[in-house]
Design a protein around this nucleic acid. Sequence first.
DNA 1: TCTGGGGTCCTAGGACCC
DNA 2: TCTGGGGTCCTAGGACCC
Length: 416
Amino acid sequence: MFALIDCNNFYASCERAFNPSLVGKPIVVLSNNDGCVIARSNEAKSLGIPMGAPAFEYKYLFERHNIAVFSANFALYGDMSSRVMTILSGYSPNQEIYSIDECFLDLSGMLVDLQEHGLAMRKHVLKWTGIPVSVGIAPTKALAKAANRIAKKFTDRTGGSYVIDTEEKRIKALKWLLVEDVWGIGRRNARKLNAIGVKTAYDFCLLSKTWVLNNMTIVGVRLQDDLNGIPTLDMEPVELKQSIATTRTFENDYRTYDEVKERVCTFAVTCAEKLRQQHSLCNRIEVFIQSNRFREDDEQYSNSVVVKLPFPTSSSIEIVEFAVQGLKSIYRQGIGYKRAGVVLMNFVQDTEYQQSLFYKSNPKHAPLMEAMDKLNDKFGTKVRLAAQDKKTHKMRQEKLSPKYTTSLKGIINVNL
DNA sequence: TCTGGGGTCCTAGGACCC
DNA sequence: TCTGGGGTCCTAGGACCC
């Protein structure tokens, strides 16, 4: 049996956990630059605020309904996530952290009442962190996802935990679950399925394997098996990242090469830092730039390039060099750029990799990077490369809550 | 004025091999 | 007249997830 534990409205719940006056009130959390809505409390959802809603278009609604608006506080959410995950890891020897707010637990062979087990997790996490979670338990991952949906949707009846452990319950769940809500069926496939009259997960399960294979590839077939109760999707061990990206939308349109270049250099450095944290070296760097797609009056241009490195490296200096080389090859004058990004790919471990006979990473860089990382880690002040931003680019974050759990300045002060 | 960011996996088709 | 057959590896792009 698999359990899928999912935090309810995670970012909104994190804000609420440290600000109890928000209980029962609508909350939205905005993306970087306070751009769009990326999380909503149930109250905000029922006011009709869609996921991804541009904040400026909904400002009026926020004010009219007295909605609590927050800038994304990823320091807080990341820390709360690890607290929740740590607690849940005590409920099974095998945990797969699937995203910042969800994890799977392998419950096979555990001699417990599963419903009680689920309720216990929920109670434990709520009491220790203030974050409400829903628990779905079933013989396969896809069914656990479905069970989780039921637990969340019918909390009053389920207590926030639902187990699919009989054929009747499986069929009932599948008939209830709309095909577009099935984990692994996105917009595209949902449209294709609706077109042939498939409305529910149950309908999908009745389709012939051949049709599914031809129209949805092997991915669809696996999903179908999983929903039919044949465990096909297994626990996946947490491994090192296969790609690391830093991409940003700018505050306004950049029209000069230097502005774009400085940002790209900083993105490259951020990526390199993350790369060194997992002790990898990269062999490829992708750089992309995009004009402002919302400005219909302006010329549109976007392009990307993949730079193949002559040797694997994690040196910020070298990664910046190659990123700039890539940027030069795609940069076009006269465009107002609104977004850019750097993606590192094709990793090897820094202790074991095939060296090139002719080229190698500058050996002086490794100790230098180590020193930089230590300084930046310890003092928070950035030791930078000269190529990086001259000025600090401040994201718009007008509604940022304190870093309650990760900064002494953010700690809650209680006056008795 | 203003519109997010970071991932994984699969496949078709090209380039190459014998 | 007539143009084989069987592979591997790589990559760009698509689809999906949160």
